[in-house]
Structure formats: C-alpha cells, structure tokens
Amino acid sequence: GRAILFFVATTAVAVTIGIALALLIRPGDYVDATNLGLASVVDASSGAAEAGGVRILDLPDRVLTLLPSNPLSSMVESNMLQVVIFASIFGVALVVMQRDKARPVLDLLASLQEVCLTIVKWAMWLAPLAVFGLMARLTAETGPQALLGVLVYVGTVLLGLLLMLGVLLVVGRVYAGVSPKVFFGAAKDVMLLAFSTSSSAAVMPLSIKTAEGPLGVRKHISQFVIPLGATINMNGTALYQGVAAIFIAQVFGVEIGAAGLILIVLTSVGASIGSPATPGVGIVILSTILVSVGVPASGIALIMGVDRLLDMSRTVVNVCGDLVACIVLDKLDHAENEERETTERVNGT
C-alpha cells in the first residue's frame, strides 16, 4: 500500500510539474500551426474548442466515459484509455482464477502480444524516415524557424525532468537520510544504462543489485519495490506526457481549462501506470491523453523526431524514482520494525 501510494503521489507531482512548466514557458507559441500542412485539423480543433472545452461540470461525465461500456467498440475506435482500464479488470480476473483455467487465455494473450510488438517494431523502423520527410518539408517551406518550437519543447521537458529528479533527491534526503552525492555515486551505472536502453525493465536487475549493494536496501524490499516500480512508477513518462499534451494543444490553439488540466493529470497518471516498461511506449500512450481533452492526435508527428532523446532522459527519472522509493520504504519499514520490537520488549518486561 505504501509503495503504490508513493508511486501514484510522485507521478501526480511529476505531471503537475510538467503542465506548470508548459503553461509558463508556452513552447507551442513558437510553432505556427498554419504552416504545418494540417490546416483542416487546426480548424477542426479550433471549432471543437469554441464549442466548449472540458468544463468543471463536465468532469464527472468525462471520467465516466473512461469506463468502457463496450470493450470491442473501444478497441475499434482506438480509445486506448478505455482499453487499458478493461485490460486491467480482465487481468485481475485472470489472476484470481484457478491457474489451470486461466492458462489457455494467458498463452493466447502472450502470442498476441508478440504479434503486436513485431508490428510496432516495423512501424518504429519506418517512423524515423517518415518524421525526417515531414520535418524536411516543413523546414523547406517555413525555414529553420519552424524547428524553434520543437527545441523549446525539448528544453521544457528536460527542465521538468531535472526538477522532478531534484524532488526525488529531496524526498530521499528527508525521509531516508541519503544525500544526493551518495545517491548519484551509487546509481550512476543504473542511470547510464537507463539512458542507453530507454527501458526500465532492462535496467531492473542492475537496479535491484544497486539497491541491495551501495544503497543498503534489504532484499525483500528491493525485490518487491523495483519490479513493481518498473511497471507502475513512470514519473518521467507522466511529466513528458503532460508537457507534450499542453504543447500540442498550444500549437493547434486548443484552450484547455482547469477541468481539462485536471483530466490531463488523471489520464497521465492512469496511462503511465498502465504503460509497459519498453522503449517508445510513451508516444503511444500520449494519443490517449490528447483524445481525452479534444486535442488532435496528429500533432504527435511534431514531436516524433525528438522522442528518442526524451525517452532516454525520462527513463533515467523513472529508474531513479524506483531507487528512491526503495530507500524511503526500506527506512520506513525498518523504523516500524524497531518500534514494534521496542513495544514488544517493553510489554514483555
């Protein structure tokens, strides 16, 4: 319970930092949407915004629409957040079932996952060429000025990741007594591997080794918290999604009110928790968040070219969040055990 509460709280803080920076810096204002060749999309988004964005009174209805009434329809319409919620409920049902009865479905889903990953790999091989063509045409038509907004967007995300890393270091210092110098000295190899692989899952064995070695976390804590964190603790990913959603909304001139910002926080936290620890998945989950607030998902093409660099950077923050969670929860558990032993000793005497 403490671990999940820690992950959800830090993820919410991360996406809030991202949204605040995007609203303050406004990187989308540096991009002229009319020169992107997506005029019809811009007009449509403007019309949707004028028709009324997400209002506070609409928020309960919007939250209710996240619950899938027809899972097959959600899949056909590419409503990914509804698919994630249905998949979570379906997964819990499989867990509580008898293993022998659930095994055929698990085998089928494993095969489907491999098929989907293979298709995604093909798409990712083609994506750099497609993005290069898009940016080359855009630069030729509008000049280098068109790239300024993307650079400001990258700077905003990196600044947000640095701030979130600072928050994690402060939490580790205050609640576990681990200084930033000690933490960086212990975690430098993990951070380097995370930056190079862009996968929390790939770093997991080294994260466990680092937690149990230099950071002194007990084995039963590290081997529970880090695998769990690699699945649901996506601080960097949530921050990136918050910045990207606001950036694309600014590019297309979609005004997002207070209710829309709350919805972005909720969907970012939920989607980051449900996203797998594999490279490039953040850009896929982002489309869910954009659709939830009425922002054209086609704007993702603007940030595809720089996503790999940001993916590497946000993975570093993700794994650092796992390690900080380890040292904090280990400290709390140790203090609780000492208090219990003291109480039992006093009662015994």
Rank of each mutant, 00 (worst) to 15 (best):
I4Y: 12
L228P: 02
S73Y: 09
W125A: 11
V170E: 03
L134P: 01
T142H: 13
A123Q: 12
V96L: 12
V96T: 12
P60Q: 02
G172F: 12
L94C: 04
A238E: 00
M97I: 06
Y153K: 10
L206D: 12
V105K: 09
R218P: 00
N337H: 08
V265Q: 08
T156H: 15
A297H: 15
G1L: 14
A211W: 02
T142A: 15
N79W: 00
S111R: 13
G185W: 10
G177T: 12
T197C: 05
L112Q: 15
D307L: 02
L36P: 06
H220T: 15
Q145F: 06
V167K: 08
S292M: 04
V13H: 00
M204E: 10
T10I: 01
L290T: 04
H220Q: 15
V152R: 00
G28I: 14
L158C: 09
I89N: 02
P227V: 06
T231F: 03
L169G: 11
V291R: 15
A3M: 08
V174H: 14
A230C: 05
G270K: 03
A110G: 13
D100F: 15
C320Y: 01
R26H: 04
R103N: 13
A249H: 04
P60H: 06
L36C: 03
L147P: 05
A238N: 07
V281C: 08
L168D: 09
G91A: 14
G37P: 07
R218T: 05
L290G: 06
L309Q: 03
S268N: 08
D330P: 05
A93V: 07
R99I: 02
W125R: 13
N347R: 14
I256P: 09
P180A: 05
G257M: 06
V157S: 05
L329A: 01
S292D: 02
V54S: 14
D330T: 01
E338F: 12
A127C: 03
V251M: 07
F132V: 02
L81F: 15
A102V: 07
E338S: 11
G47F: 03
L228V: 06
F86C: 10
V154N: 12
V243P: 03
I17F: 10
G236I: 02
T34D: 11
N79F: 03
M135T: 05
S199N: 02
V96Q: 05
